[in-house]
Design a protein around this nucleic acid. Sequence first.
DNA 1: GGGTCGATTGACTGGTCAGTCAGCCGCTGG
DNA 2: CCAGCGGCTGACTGACCAGTCAATCGACCC
Lengths: 199, 199
Amino acid sequence: MAKAPPVDKRRQILDAAIRVFARQGFHATRVSDIADEAGVAYGLVYHYFKSKDEVLDELFVERWSLLLAAIDEADRTGESPRAKLAAVASFIVDSYHHDPELMKVIIVEVTRAANSFGRTHLEQIRRAYESIAKIVADGQEAGAFRRDVDPTFASMSFYGAIEQLLSGWIFEVIPGSDGSFEQAKELVVTMICDGLEPR
Amino acid sequence: MAKAPPVDKRRQILDAAIRVFARQGFHATRVSDIADEAGVAYGLVYHYFKSKDEVLDELFVERWSLLLAAIDEADRTGESPRAKLAAVASFIVDSYHHDPELMKVIIVEVTRAANSFGRTHLEQIRRAYESIAKIVADGQEAGAFRRDVDPTFASMSFYGAIEQLLSGWIFEVIPGSDGSFEQAKELVVTMICDGLEPR
DNA sequence: GGGTCGATTGACTGGTCAGTCAGCCGCTGG
DNA sequence: CCAGCGGCTGACTGACCAGTCAATCGACCC
């Protein structure tokens, strides 16, 4: 009973799924691909997960909850609205830098595929937009941001700009060197904020 | 020989495909769904198209070439860089306003799905980014835009912000009234340009 | 009428996979 | 040594569907 398996097979399956989904895309990967990549029997995937969908769900929820937490934490710092947005941008870009495959899967298969998968997670995704919108709204309240831009609108544009950058890296439309990650964080914020701040 | 069919079945199939793809997503629609929606026999789809994929390809190419043309035309007007970007934003938003279903299909199934379908069309998609980047670069040349932002970078952010807005409308994350379309065009440009223009 | 040819039809086939399940393996406790 | 049990295995099945194709239709021409 008190048997701690030397390797966590469940984790192993999830990690393998990240690699395979990133390489082939969700629709094109067979459950057997995941099992093979994980070095595990086909059936074991179904021991730990109800379905192939649930594997992707798990990956998304795991990561997205971190994003939501990061946004909330940025908000609670009490720094300037601009610094809060910078923290959010930084978290997202760092997430990509740290684990490009996972972010690729989340963006390509969930966030930007709201038709199939995203549908299930739309509520979570929306929550991120709203939290960012709150940062903007507070900034307007405090006079740091112009008031003629709808906060939700600004939030969507901000997030969209960042996601598009990640997409550019993912699909190699733009080169992604270490330097460009750091640069990107700053530039997104500069572009958006200098458009938001009065004058 | 000089037989003009009273109804263009090919067109009928394409239009039906737009509706069905928009409703169910590409992967979830069967070829028989398209045929049924078009009021046409299953086999006829294969008379006009080599495969289900080719139907989507056709829809994308048809529309995207208009976008590329619109960007080039905006560029040739010789107006201010800001006005050029406004024209581009306007065209994209109007495209959505005029035919939301088609734009939904293009964005969700091609543009944001660069893993599966987009891969084939990455070159076309990239071309749009580059044309926009050229507008930015010319603006920098002319001193209308700040020079410390990479044009490609600005282009991606600009396009990303717009696409995210469309996504918001598509998935009803943000409400899409007639007024909000007009407002959106302006706000995107305002946000981006006031961040790009020096001071 | 008969011939031709493209448009149109829809039953059928072949291949693919997600998910099931019957049972094995190896540990632990009695 | 046996029983029990959870982790683990992988062959198998049932459903689904893209794409094929042989046959029919109907315009037009001779």
